[in-house]
Design a protein around this nucleic acid. Structure first.
Length: 968
RNA sequence: GGGCGGUUAGCUCAGUUGGUUAGAGCGCCUGCCUUACAAGCAGGAUGUCGGGGGUUCGAGUCCCUCACUGCCCA
């Protein structure tokens, strides 16, 4: 037996094999194009239809389709979000590849600075040691070990999911090449005056002990307190007010309101609004800072909100960005009162060494004791937490490196506004622009050990900073300013997104020493598409756009001309997908314990079924509530295909024994049915064309859900449920049968099946690969179904163009007619209780001559499908015939001894009458409306009229049928 | 505080520029182990499209408003 498929579909038995095969055979490698073929390859939006496939082995032809994998962090395992992301990219990559495009999907992993360092530190803690104990070098070595282990694990998982990436081009964000790009980007920006270093209030994470960017802070509404604290006015007698609850300031103090009493220790002023009438008398006065007894000024600033709290705000420039700004305006000093771990430092006097919350408690107690604590209000406030450690962020004055972002942002805004980058769904364009137009300078330094160390050297002699020139490979040996050799490299590393933001240029070899772009860069930049989640729209997408537009602009085009903005962008299209949630729409999180491990679910149902689930549910803009019930259904779908294959192979083998063979050369193309082929063949071929066209259309709009539904419907609903059942009639190998029909039937069957597999293969690569190889039985032209042509429907099979496809339209109508007739007979049989196996005669009435011919032409098929022994055609209208099923133009009755269930039939007819009457009322209301007739398009009016008249006929018939039923 | 989305069958979701009787899968009911498949086949039931108002000949679809809900930014 050439086609030996096991009886049951078992994904585990086939998937590992093919996953390994694809990698081993290097099937999806896209080599660097040669000079002649690469120049000026357009990378426009691919047109899915009407393209010509490049000749075998000609890698240069065809448009390029490049897609960059958002590199997973090397922190652990892949999650469902990764699987969704990769499934979508894989579907698109496989689709484009099968369309004959030069397809490159680039895989890699991200070093993920903070995240990875945290994981390794956690490991060290468990071992009873720490990074400090190890020292920087040993720690870095330790993280590299981690990276080797987990980075590999992640890529192995990707392989298992069938990702059709080019494994030869795998990158890691700390590879030497990518590190050179990072250094070049930094030094160029520095030389351009776009990187500066300075002391500012930044988001400090006391757990990670590093600064983080605004984006890494998650704001959370929390119920807190607003404390009122009295600051005595210098030179006024405070004894005059004995009442501790007197909140007015007139009696020797000014009451401020704060949510963070412990920062009082760093206060340098109290600010009031200059026009606040309550405090006019305090202008020019000073206050005595409680607890520390420091004299601080009262400053006037319109930034103060008079309505908030008491209208007097304590100013702590070192621990609040707004206070810092105000401090700058008023030339106030900044007093940092906390250390790296958010403990009070020596500036906090008696509170030194206390944790910030312990200090808060103590400060409040002491104020209370002094009678300086006023009212306490409940207060809702937004607390910033570190995205990674979840610790409360401490705004803290520290010296950091920043990118002056405006010039880069301007270009990134222009690129999107001018349409060089398109977002899908398009509302993300607005989100992107809104963020970009309100952007703040980017804090790029991190006080970590894991990452790209900032290429800047501090001079011990003159304290100036030396940054290498762009293009300078060697580290500086002496200070640029005083030439001292006592220089040491900055210990901070760069934000992880600095290197990932450069990926679209760095993976293709940027920077270019000779100024000429590499062949890869010329061929694949800009990439075609980015597929990613909205959660990293600002972190990554926006940064890539800024950096791509900035750095690629200096790279000449392949022909040497200047690169314009439209060719500087890192990608032409961005497809943003949603979050994968659990079945209850809850966000998956480790703490909730509702995380679904893709590999576990894949083991349970097979990769194909999980991929299909994700694709089906990936409608743009909405989150995916991952539902195993759906996956179960798609495993059943895979099983259905598997068994269809078994059925077909069984018949192919039987035919071969009977000396009938199918020419394998007829496979691999879009099937066509000749005019004299049976209706079912013409019809299924036409439906395949129609579905293929629709699938291509859906994919070009990133409508994975629509594409999946179309294929599912065609494969199961059209091909298996109808065509396969009809064609069984012709696959008769009994001795008495005429076998002339077997060959053509088998040919169409195989052609349509094989094309359907190709249509499905981007979605379910494993099962389609397995069956496709079995079909060809070792004699296929390609090494994989993934390297064949994607089915493209001929436009003549689309509905609505009668001049070119009148025949097809009639075929569709006839097929539909057969289905309705067969369904009616089956329903009638069921109503009468005819046993499934028993054949029964059917009487059919119609006075329409075209229907007579239709019945005669299709009698065999109708009888076969409905288990009818004899079809008796009466060329008249049906008279009174209780229980007959009446339809437009025809009526039928199954002859069977048992009478129908009268109450059930009455019920059915009553419901039908109600439905028809309702439709008629609605139709008549519209048709009786002058305005409708005058304004609605003719086609709508005509359609409604036709339907109204049909419904009227059906209503008369239904009423007659009801009346004809014998009384109970 | 600013912005964006969602609310359609028991559940999870589709529903393209307004247009004829609102769909799918799962689940449910009934009958079938019909020689590819019980992970299946056949037949069937199920919706005041969140509430209210408006525009229109016509609204699930457009506008206003309310309610609930999710997210982003500050």
């Amino acid at each position: 037996m050439p086609h030996d498929l096991p009886k049951a579909y078992d994904p585990a038995a086939i998937e590992d094999k093919w996953a390994e095969y694809w990698v081993r055979e290097n099937l999806f490698a896209q080599p660097t194009p040669t000079e002649s073929s690469s120049a000026g390859v357009p990378n426009d939006r691919p047109s899915s239809l009407g393209r010509s496939k490049p000749a075998e082995g000609d890698q240069g032809a065809g448009t390029a389709f490049t897609i960059l994998l958002p590199p997973p962090n090397v922190t652990g395992r892949l999650h469902m979000g990764h699987m969704l992301n990769q499934t979508e990219m894989d579907i698109l990559s496989r689709w484009h590849r099968m369309l004959g495009e030069k397809t490159l999907w680039l895989p890699g992993t991200d070093h993920a600075g903070i995240a990875t360092q945290m994981m390794v530190e956690r490991q060290l803690t468990a071992e009873g040691t720490s990074r400090q104990a190890l020292g920087r070098t040993a720690f870095e070595a330790r993280v590299w070990q981690w990276r080797d282990q987990y980075g590999k694990a992640i890529l192995d998982q990707m392989k298992r999911l069938g990702a059709s990436v080019d494994w030869n081009r795998e990158y890691f964000t700390m590879d030497s090449g990518l590190s050179i790009a990072v250094r070049e980007a930094f030094t160029r920006l520095y030389a351009q005056g776009l990187i500066y270093r300075g002391a500012y209030v930044v988001n400090w994470c006391p757990s990670c002990q590093t600064a983080v960017s605004d984006l890494e802070v998650v704001h959370e509404e929390t119920l807190g307190k607003l404390w009122e604290i009295r600051y005595p006015v210098v030179g006024e007698s405070n004894e005059s007010s004995g009442a501790p609850n007197d909140r007015s300031s007139s009696l020797g103090w000014l009451t401020v309101a704060t949510t963070r009493p412990e920062t009082l220790l760093g206060d340098v002023a109290v600010a009031i609004h200059p026009e606040d009438e309550r405090y006019l008398h305090l202008h020019g006065k000073k206050l005595l800072l409680p607890l520390l007894n420091r004299e601080i000024p009262i400053v006037l600033d319109t930034w103060v909100s008079r309505d908030f709290g008491t209208g007097a705000v304590k100013i702590t420039p070192a621990h609040d960005p707004n206070d810092f700004a105000l401090g700058q305006r008023h030339n106030l000093p900044s007093i940092n009162v906390m250390d790296d771990r958010a403990h009070i430092n020596q500036n906090g006097g008696p509170y030194a060494g206390l944790d910030r919350y312990v200090a808060r408690k103590r400060v409040l107690e002491d104020l209370e004791a002094l009678g300086l604590l006023g009212a306490i209000h409940d207060h809702k406030l937004s607390v910033g937490r570190c995205d990674r450690s979840k610790d409360v962020i401490e705004p803290r004055l520290s010296t950091q490196w920043f990118i002056k972002i405006q010039p880069l942002a301007d270009r990134a805004i222009q690129a999107v506004k001018e349409g060089h980058i398109r977002f899908t769904p398009d509302n993300y364009k607005k989100t992107y622009l809104n963020w970009m137009e309100n952007i703040h300078d980017w804090c790029i330094s991190r006080q970590l050990w894991w990452g790209h160390r900032i290429p800047a050297w501090h001079c011990a002699a003159c304290h100036k900073i030396t940054v290498p020139q762009p293009g300078q490979a060697a580290d500086p040996a002496t200070c640029d300013f005083c030439h001292s050799a006592e220089i040491t490299q900055e210990t901070d590393v760069l934000d992880t997104w600095f290197s990932s933001g450069l990926l679209p240029v760095s993976v293709f070899g940027w920077p270019f020493a000779d100024g000429k772009p590499s062949a890869d860069f010329s061929a694949f930049y800009p990439t075609g598409l980015l597929v990613t989640g909205f959660d990293i729209l600002f972190f990554w997408v926006a940064r890539m756009i800024m950096m791509g537009c900035w750095f690629a602009a200096d790279v000449p085009m392949p022909d040497g001309s200047k690169r314009e903005l439209q060719d500087s962008v890192p990608f032409k299209e961005v497809y943003i997908h949603a979050l994968v949630r659990d079945a209850n729409r809850e966000k998956m999180s480790k703490t909730k314990g509702n995380v679904i491990d893709p590999i576990e679910i894949v083991k349970k149902y097979g990769t194909d079924a999980v991929r299909f689930t994700l694709a089906s549910m990936a409608s743009p803009g909405t989150d995916i509530a991952f539902n195993e019930a759906r996956t179960e259904g798609y495993r059943a779908f895979a099983n259905k295909i598997w068994n269809a294959a078994r059925f077909i192979f069984m018949n192919v083998d039987r035919a071969a024994e009977a000396g009938i063979k199918v020419d394998p050369k007829s496979l691999g193309k879009m099937p066509a049915a000749s005019d004299d082929a049976p209706l079912e063949d013409r019809s299924v071929v036409a439906e395949l064309h129609r579905s293929s066209t629709a699938v291509n259309e859906a994919l070009s709009n990133y409508r994975f859900d629509e594409a999946a539904a179309l294929i599912y419907q065609f494969f199961w609903g059209t091909f298996c449920d109808w065509y396969l059942e009809i064609v069984k009639r012709r696959l008769d190998f009994s001795d008495t049968s005429d076998k002339a029909e077997v060959g053509p039937a088998l040919t169409t069957l195989l052609q349509v099946f094989e094309a359907s597999l190709r249509l499905l293969s981007p979605f379910m690569p494993f099962i389609t690969e397995e069956i496709w190889h079995k079909i060809h039985d070792g004699d296929s032209l390609a090494a994989s179904i993934a390297l064949t042509d994607y089915p493209a429907g001929l436009p003549i099979y689309e509905m609505g163009e009668p001049e070119v496809n009148e025949r097809t339209i009639f075929d569709f109508l006839d097929t539909e007619h057969i289905r309705r007739l067969v369904t009616e007979i089956r329903a009638q049989r069921k109503a009468k209780g005819v046993p499934e196996k028993e054949r029964a005669p059917v009487q059919l009435w119609t006075s329409s001559p075209p229907d007579w011919k239709f019945i005669e032409d299709n009698e065999k098929v109708i009888k076969f499908l409905s288990n009818t022994s004899e079809l008796l055609l009466y060329k008249t209208d049906v008279g009174k015939r209780p229980g007959a099923r009446e339809n437009l133009g025809w009526a039928l009755d199954v002859e069977y001894a048992v009478t129908i269930d009268i109450p059930a039939e009455r019920d059915r007819l009553t419901k039908e009458i109600a439905k028809l009457e309702k439709a008629l009322v609605s139709a008549n209301r519209q048709l009786g409306n002058e305005a409708f007739l005058a304004k609605a398009p003719a086609a709508i009016v005509e359609g409604l009229k036709k339907q109204e008249s049909e419904n009227r006929q059906l209503l008369v018939k239904a009423k007659a049928a009801l009346a004809a039923l014998p009384p109970e």
